[in-house]
């Protein structure tokens, strides 16, 4: 029997993509992902150690810190994409709802469907715009054409791409601009109705204008999806996140230094390192 991946999705379903929400959206934080004592090695080299934190449902959690301190490694452990890297070992426990994601009996493809991922560089497949969304849907068992069309239209509308591309759905996705490609990738993730979206610096490869559009989109996803976002842009983290986690290298190993409400972490950091990092970057 496969461990159930269905978390209390009843609450998630009641959210609709409403107007831009400001401030913390979640008054009573309920964890959707619980990470306990996570460690990660590439071969014999430790990259991440002793990370424990909860990701709260419906909130945006920002992962900040200098380059190479294990934020991306952390993110790829959450949907077990780290499995693809030869020699990568993950220790500790990650709970997603009721399930342990390292359970050997887990349905890995189902897990990755429920925990979507957006990469730094937009990576639409070399297919048409429509096929980019239709192919994953078909692979996950959606066969009826009207249902497919409706889901595709809805996803493209949600990311604000429908008006721009509805008359050229069969054009190559690689012909879109960088910002449009990234929004298509987000549409491709949300068309599968995930619960969590992992984003690895989704704006850093885009020009400032496209970056602003994608950032606004991420804010609009709050509530309906749980978002975990890696960003080097502290101002962006401050603008969009409810929670923030600060990572730092200690003895060549990435560690979690501080985790808390975004506002608190930026305005009243408990750790001196956090304070120095925020001050050093912002002023």
């Amino acid at each position: 029997m496969t461990p159930s991946l269905s978390t209390a999705s009843a609450t998630a379903d009641t959210f609709t993509l409403g107007p831009l929400q400001n401030g913390p959206a979640c008054c009573i934080p309920t964890p959707i992902l619980s990470i306990e004592n996570l460690s990660l090695h590439y071969g014999d080299k430790p990259a991440l150690a002793e990370v424990s934190l909860d990701i709260y449902r419906g909130c945006i959690t920002a992962l900040i810190g200098p380059s190479g301190c294990g934020k991306t490694s952390f993110l790829s452990a959450l949907n077990r994409l780290s499995d693809l890297i030869p020699g990568c070992r993950v220790g500790g426990r990650i709970r997603f709802g009721d399930a342990d994601i390292h359970d050997p009996a887990i349905d890995l493809q189902g897990l990755r469907r429920k925990i979507g991922m957006i990469f730094q560089k937009p990576n639409p497949f070399p297919l048409s715009i429509r096929r980019n969304l239709e192919m994953p849907l078909r692979e996950h068992g959606v066969d009826r054409q009207d249902e497919l069309d409706e889901k595709i239209r809805q996803a493209l509308t949600d990311v604000g791409l429908w008006d721009e591309v509805h008359d050229r759905l069969d054009a190559p996705a690689l012909g879109l601009s960088g910002g449009q490609q990234q929004r298509l990738c987000i549409a491709r993730a949300i068309v599968l109705e995930p619960e969590v979206l992992l984003m690895d610096e989704p704006c850093s490869a885009l020009d400032p204008l496209s970056s602003a559009v994608v950032e606004a989109l991420i804010q609009r996803l709050r509530g309906r999806y749980t978002v975990v976002i890696v960003t080097h842009n502290l101002a962006q983290a401050r603008r969009i996140a409810n929670y923030a986690a600060f990572f730092w290298m200690r003895e060549k190993v990435g560690k979690l230094v501080e985790f808390g409400r975004c506002q608190q972490l930026f305005d009243m950091p408990r750790d001196d390192l956090t304070a120095a990092y925020i001050a050093g970057i912002s002023g």
Partner: peptide, 16 residues
């Protein structure tokens, strides 16, 4: 490799 990772992240099988 980004296409491989993209496909895996969408929960696609290797065959797909």
């Amino acid at each position: 490799d980004e296409w491989r990772r993209g496909a895996a992240a969408l929960g696609l099988s290797q065959a797909a």
